[in-house]
């Protein structure tokens, strides 16, 4: 266990007094390494809360720069940082909040050539990206590397959160058990139809952060095997059953996907594009 400084004991006191966390749990968080895909709407609250919680190492991948239109929901950035790489902006915010956190930045797109090597160094992966090809890539990479994946997605007023860890949960599904392949072009709304209620990103991302801390600590019930869906207009959360599909092309009994697949990055595929 880590020898806490006095400042750390004070900083993390509200965690340490929780019997489910304690000094041991806090020490575990400080030694944990989490990798996040996306420093946007979902990535902002995730990074904020994991940093505040004292997750020792946070890796963030995002190829974009901060844009004025991001600030309606991407709260880790600010107006002075418009034009700055999002990963740099996120690093500045995190380090101002908690100098205990080591931030690793990946200012480029995650692809089939780099994803497995990158995630190998981390304990937990959090997906908050904005497109289907990356979601499938990250799911497959996590499956091959036996990493737990906490996936969040949103569209207009709706959100979805799920934990995928078929390596650890014998009956746990992967993302492809839910959706075997990305939707074809033209069957989902185009970018111009998209939009997003800013605070929805906070609701969905914060659930991902809560789930991440629980997974790191190993407390409570995992969301594995459940899909949480949130309808902000009805102010309604639902938990649906997610089952491991024996016919899943990745984790099923006769897998057809044995290596990473690169899907075309089409605008039509990006339902909740920024």
């Amino acid at each position: 266990m880590i020898d806490f400084t006095e400042e750390q004991i004070e900083r993390y006191s509200r965690h340490i007094i929780l019997p489910e966390v304690g000094a041991e749990g806090q020490s575990k968080l400080l030694e944990s390494k989490v990798f996040m895909i996306g420093a946007g709407g979902l990535g902002s609250p995730v990074a904020y809360y994991l940093a505040a919680a004292g997750v020792g190492t946070i890796g963030i991948a995002d190829a974009d720069v901060v844009d004025m239109s991001n600030l309606q929901r991407q709260i880790i950035h600010n107006q002075d940082r418009v034009g700055m790489p999002k990963v740099e902006s996120a690093r500045e915010t995190i380090q101002a909040l908690n100098p205990d956190v080591q931030v690793n930045t990946y200012n480029y797109r995650i692809d089939a050539d780099n994803v497995r090597e990158i995630i190998r160094d981390y304990d937990l992966i959090i997906d908050g990206c904005d497109n289907f090809p990356t979601r499938f890539l990250v799911n497959d990479a996590c499956f091959f590397e036996h990493k737990t994946l906490i996936s969040g997605a949103m569209f207009r007023f709706e959100g979805q959160v799920a934990t995928f860890k078929p390596h650890a949960d014998k009956e746990g599904p992967c993302y492809r058990c839910l959706y075997p392949e990305p939707p074809p072009n033209g069957l989902v709304p185009s970018c111009s139809e998209a939009g997003i209620l800013g605070a929805l990103a906070g609701a969905v991302g914060t659930i991902q952060a809560v789930e991440a801390v629980k997974e790191l600590l190993g407390i409570g019930d995992s969301l594995s095997g459940r899909l949480m869906i949130f309808d902000a207009l009805r102010m309604e959360w639902k938990k649906l059953k997610l089952r491991q599909d024996p016919g899943c092309p990745l984790c099923g009994t006769k897998p057809t996907i044995t290596d990473l697949v690169t899907y075309e990055q089409a605008c039509e595929l990006q339902l909740g594009h920024s």
Partner: peptide
């Protein structure tokens, strides 16, 4: 009955 489509937005 709920219809739950794949969504991908995160940013």
């Amino acid at each position: 009955v709920s219809i739950v489509p794949a969504i991908a937005g995160g940013k």
